[in-house]
């Protein structure tokens, strides 16, 4: 089995997978806890506009896409704060607009069209070494920021109004969270593609939420599950010559339904939940 890592592209893929797993485990936990999953989806799809723009302007992928996604994310966040009950509508509009812009930019670009499939479904097997360093730096920045504001994020995520009364700058925290989410999403698109990015953010966090009793535990379990799903997905892709991104999401999807099933069985039992058992069976 381990001979698949004799190939340098598989080692790169593994490193990228682990880094993205950690980024998505941490940010996915905060997205799920703050019900920002739809907003994350909006960022992911609007990012397509950034990919098109970067291609059209001949900018490198990361700065171009990240800039565009941050702009879209801040717009969505500002509207969500101002008119909360309209947030989903506005996010939906920006979601579609971003994708359409992306396609138009690609149409207008001269020369051979870019392989958009690799951005839709990911290109984990062709991640360049420089991107790995960018991901490592991002993972460290996210860990540092989330660590520094952990208690604020906890109070804010659990009860925003109370956090505000305690003098926590909830608006700034919200924008910081959305900004980190945009960074996480743009990096994850590289690995599993924008269609599937939501799965890595939500599924592990959703499973972890059931069996943990702190945000930190939830982040750790979500990271672990992400790494597990990525490993299974990569192995499947290698063995059966399938698209790696889709395989990773498929294994996450299987984990999702196993977790639902386990929860259902657990609820029928009279006693409380047994955390380690449930998780080890989750594999």
């Amino acid at each position: 089995m381990l001979e698949i890592f004799d190939f340098s592209f598989m080692r790169h893929a593994l490193a990228a997978g682990v880094l993205v797993s950690v980024i998505c485990g941490v940010m996915g936990t905060l997205a799920v806890a703050n019900r920002l999953v739809f907003l994350s989806g909006g960022i992911a799809h609007a990012a397509y506009g950034g990919i098109g723009l970067a291609f059209y302007m001949r900018w490198p992928y990361l700065p171009g896409t990240l800039g565009f996604s941050l702009l879209a994310a801040f717009t969505m966040a500002a509207v969500s704060l101002k008119a909360r009950y309209r947030a989903d509508t506005v996010i939906g509009a920006i979601w579609a607009l971003g994708m359409a812009l992306g396609i138009l930019f690609i149409d207008l670009s001269p020369g051979y069209p870019v392989d958009l499939m690799s951005y839709l479904f990911g290109s984990i097997l062709t991640v360049p070494g420089t991107d790995l360093w960018v991901m490592l730096a991002t993972a460290l920045v996210i860990a540092l920021v989330v660590g520094a504001y952990y208690n604020d994020f906890l109070a804010f995520s659990y009860d925003e109004e109370f956090a505000q009364v305690r003098g926590i700058p909830v608006r700034r925290l919200y924008f910081l969270l959305v900004c980190l989410l945009a960074v996480a999403v743009v990096l994850t698109i590289r690995v599993v593609g924008l269609i599937l990015v939501i799965a890595l953010l939500t599924i592990p966090a959703f499973i972890a939420e059931k069996f943990t009793r702190s945000l930190l535990q939830m982040m750790a379990v979500a990271c672990g599950l992400n790494i597990l799903f990525t490993l299974i997905g990569l192995t499947l892709a290698y063995l059966y010559n399938l698209t790696a991104g889709a395989c990773i999401i498929l294994s996450a999807g299987a984990g999702f339904f196993i977790a639902l099933l386990l929860e259902h069985i657990h609820k029928r039992k009279p006693s409380g939940t047994d955390v380690p058992m449930a998780l080890s069976q989750g594999k």
């Binding site: 806890a33 019900r35 906890l154 995520s157 659990y158 009860d159 109004e161 972890a208 939420e209 059931k210 943990t212 009793r213 702190s214 945000l215 535990q217 939830m218």
Partner: peptide, 8 residues
């Protein structure tokens, strides 16, 4: 208005 499933 708290999420009842919040792990805390």
């Amino acid at each position: 208005a708290v999420n009842p499933h919040f792990p805390v």
